[in-house]
Design a protein around this nucleic acid. Structure first.
Length: 253
DNA sequence: CCGTGTTTGTTCCACCCAGA
DNA sequence: TCTGGGTGGAACAAACACGG
């Protein structure tokens, strides 16, 4: 241990093990039932065939499960856990100001920064731009009433990963008024270590090797495929149609 | 009182398309 | 042909409502 920030590295690894991975696994386990998905009958078989070359139930199941587990599920989980990450792993820096995720002393210019955290360079949309600006305007007002010296260089958006070139147009609109700091630069200002970003991503990369979800994926897909097979059975469909006609079936409007 | 279902707010990202 | 602005769908977590 060469310095205090090694502790952040360790805590980040723990956070991944205790928060992110378990949540991801739990959400994956939910996917054994067809009702967890929004089906698109125009595309379900096409996707299965595109993926595996056939449209049997198992292929359809794979085509549903893969994009969910490796896409929206883990990405959304990661983003949602960011707030918690800020308060637990960056605990020394948690902010009590509404709309501000963390406060920290910028190791480059020595000033206290009021920072909103975002995950990546593409993760805000048009509406978020005004929301973020609104939050900063609120902080400026609050600072004025409390006689705090908050310049607008001190109100920043911190992005966990990416490079300045990656920033979407939405971020660039914020950057016209405020400072947006991303990736290596963000972690440098936070910790004062130039290579902290690299060390942190490497550390999480090490944790990744502790996880092998192949068996779980197999189980989930097999189970889901069984239900797909049943629902494709014409007799079963007949029953459902009759029940709906009788008003017995569950039929969401 | 507890567990389950529902609603709300946040977050993510892919796609479309106009204009340079 | 490339770039960037803008749109929309989806999942998740947390708060909330409801029925046993």
């Amino acid at each position: 241990m060469s310095n205090n920030y090694d502790e952040i590295i360790e805590k980040a690894k723990e956070f991944f093990r205790k928060e992110i991975a378990p949540s991801h696994i739990a959400n994956t386990k939910k996917l054994t039932k067809l009702k967890q998905f929004n089906l698109n009958p125009f595309l379900d078989k096409y996707k299965a065939s595109f993926l595996t070359g056939n449209d049997d139930p198992k292929s359809i199941a794979k085509a549903l499960v893969y994009p969910r587990v490796l896409g929206t599920s883990i990405n959304t989980t990661f983003g949602n856990k960011l707030q918690k990450f800020c308060s637990e792993v960056l605990e020394g820096f948690a902010s009590t100001t509404s709309g501000i995720d963390i406060e920290f002393i910028d190791k480059v210019d020595g000033r206290r920064k009021y920072c909103q955290i975002k995950a990546g360079p593409n993760t805000i949309n048009k509406d978020d731009v005004e929301t973020i600006k609104g939050h900063f305007a609120g902080v400026k007002n609050l600072a004025r009433t409390n006689n705090l010296n908050v310049g607008f260089n001190d109100l920043i958006v911190g992005v966990f990963y990416g490079t300045p070139e990656d920033l979407s147009g939405h971020y660039k609109r914020i950057a016209q008024e405020y400072t947006v700091i991303i990736g290596a630069e963000f972690w440098y200002r936070l910790t004062g270590e130039e290579d902290f970003y690299q060390r942190l991503t490497d550390a999480i990369g090490d944790v990744a090797s502790e996880y092998d979800g192949s068996e779980l994926m197999d189980k989930v897909i097999t189970s889901l495929a069984k239900e797909i097979e049943k629902s494709l059975d014409p007799k079963q469909l007949d029953v459902e149609v009759r029940e709906i006609a009788d008003g017995k079936g569950t039929y969401d409007v």
